[in-house]
Amino acid sequence: MPAKGYIEVNELYCKACELCVTDCPFDVLALDMTRLTSKGYHPAYMVNPDACTGCGICAVSCPDAAITVYRYERQRPEA
């Protein structure tokens, strides 16, 4: 089973540059066109959260360090 994870976007920092959306290899992210941040940007969010592996590529491409990446601990198969 592939690794699973999720991200949190800090909307104070997100400037909607879309680099994370472009770089995500699993098309997890999109800009939320229904909301605006306090700075007037449409923040990035997980449109397809089940595909997230917690690889962290979005965080590496984010120029504003707005993304925190989490990865679920691997579940041990029950005997």
């Binding site: 994870g5 999720y6 800090n10 104070l12 920092y13 400037k15 909607a16 540059c17 879309e18 680099l19 700075k39 940007y41 917690g54 962290g56 965080a59 590496v60 120029p63 504003d64 360090a65 707005a66 993304i67 925190t68 990446v69 989490y70 990865r71 679920y72 601990e73 579940q75």
Partner: peptide, 23 residues
């Protein structure tokens, strides 16, 4: 399910928002 942090904003980076343009 327990999750561990893989990446977070570095400590040395001040919490204020930069003035740089998006991207």
């Amino acid at each position: 399910i327990p999750a561990k942090i893989v990446y977070q904003r570095p400590e040395a980076f001040d919490p204020r928002v930069t003035h740089y343009c998006p991207g």
